[in-house]
Nucleic acid binder design. Structure first.
Length: 213
DNA sequence: CAGTCGATTCACT
DNA sequence: GTGAATCGACTGA
């Protein structure tokens, strides 16, 4: 018998811990995206940790910029970036404040609001693909730069809330190199996922792009 | 101020 | 498996 997920919101203290600890702990939690058309809820199945200025793979590696400013702020807020000219991805900022660490949300299972997610993810063949990959996840949730800095620990008025959910069994948590991260930053096994979960995205090594004519 | 490239996805072969 | 799409941020001059 499977216990139903705990719908208690996670407090800011949850995020005010070292990023590797938070990343593992986020697996199996539920992210709720509240919109005017109703909520979309995701069970998180895959994440990656980025450890601020000490981490060559992190956007914060070279210090604070206009894009990554939110990462340097308090934990529990959402950092959204735009990439490849067409996609958005989202992170949850971790502690301690000022360290600029964060967890990239890479994949999840849509457990509520499938209809709404489908409208934004036309190309998804199955429901498992709705949030299978970081840009797909953000698209399914209707996330863009307008939501950069949103507080995920601000109560029901916030566009985001993270619920206690059903934390993944530690024996089922796997780790490996981060997807698509170039150079030295790629070596850390800071990608975490739930073993055998069908919503986890495939691993791809970083591929430098060839020059255009 | 021009050049380079990305924490990716999709269509096609 | 390969290549195109597409643009803002960052880099270095």
């Amino acid at each position: 018998m499977i216990a139903s997920p705990d719908r208690t919101p996670l407090p800011r203290a949850f995020f005010d811990r070292p990023v590797l600890e938070v990343a593992r702990d986020l697996l199996g939690r539920h992210l709720v995206r509240t919109t005017e058309d109703g909520p979309i809820e995701l069970r998180l199945t895959e994440v990656e940790a980025y450890d601020g200025p000490n981490d060559p793979g992190s956007h914060a590696y070279r210090g604070r910029t206009t894009r990554n400013g939110v990462m340097f702020g308090p934990p529990g807020h959402v950092y959204v970036y735009f990439t490849y000219g067409m996609w958005h991805c989202m992170n949850l900022v971790c502690g301690p404040e000022g360290r600029a660490s964060g967890v990239l949300l890479r994949a999840g299972e849509v457990v509520e609001g499938v209809e709404q997610a489908r409208k934004r993810r036309i190309s998804a063949r199955t429901d498992k693909e709705l949030a299978k990959g970081p840009a797909r996840l953000a698209t399914a949730l209707g996330v863009d730069r307008a939501l950069d800095g949103a507080d995920a620990c601000a109560g029901p008025d916030s566009p985001f809330t993270v619920l206690h959910g059903t934390p993944a069994d530690p024996d089922q948590v796997r780790s490996g190199p981060r997807t698509g991260v170039a150079g030295e930053g790629g070596v850390h096994p800071w990608r975490f996922w739930i073993s055998d979960d069908p919503t986890v995205s495939p691993y791809r090594a970083h591929v430098p792009r060839r020059r255009r004519a």
